[in-house]
Amino acid sequence: MRWFVERVVLTILGVLVICTIALASGAEVDKKWTYDAGIGFEGQAAIENDTVRLEVECGNGGGPSIALSSEIKLSLGEMPIIIFKIDGKNHDVAFQCFADGKKCGSFGFPSREVITALQRGNQLEIIDVGSFSLKGSNAALSGLSYCLDPA
């Protein structure tokens, strides 16, 4: 019986160590893509990490729009070209940021290549901003079919 108790205790300790390492490494836990049909023209797909929220929706011009927002200043400048690194490939996206630096929106429509990479990719790193999992992004972004796949 003592052997069994020792094995159970060691197993629990092992699980705790693995969870601690994952949290300490900054692993995204429960950060999932969401879709809210009640926002914008056709809804909004979004994900956030500890500091930044990434939103994709159909903009006023009928095409996709990407926004970044944060409670802290993003320090990206007024009209930055932001690099979206998706599965190791860089995509340049033009943005315009508000004066307080806490919200930036895509300037013009992001390329179809960027949107497709967001839908099909595994990992997104926005240089100087943060990283996001793309798991579940295709399902969330598919709600924006009007501006992503215009007829």
Rank of each mutant, 00 (worst) to 15 (best):
L54M: 14
D36A: 09
Y35G: 08
S75F: 15
R120M: 05
L148N: 09
G59I: 00
N90A: 07
L148F: 04
F98C: 07
A45W: 12
I12N: 00
A46N: 07
N90F: 07
E113K: 15
V52N: 03
L10H: 01
A67N: 01
V56R: 06
V129Y: 04
E113H: 15
L13H: 01
V15N: 01
F84N: 12
E125I: 08
V129R: 02
V9K: 06
S111P: 10
E57R: 11
G105F: 05
I83D: 06
T34W: 06
G62R: 01
G130C: 08
S69Y: 00
H91F: 14
L23N: 07
A151G: 12
K135E: 11
T20H: 02
G121P: 10
L118Y: 04
Y146H: 10
F132C: 10
R7H: 04
E28G: 13
L134K: 02
V17D: 00
S137M: 05
D100C: 13
T20P: 00
I72G: 02
A45F: 11
T34F: 04
N90S: 12
V129A: 09
A46W: 03
F95H: 07
I72D: 07
C19S: 11
G136E: 11
I18L: 15
G26M: 03
D100R: 08
L134M: 06
S137V: 01
G14L: 04
V129G: 04
S137L: 03
N138M: 10
P80S: 09
T116W: 02
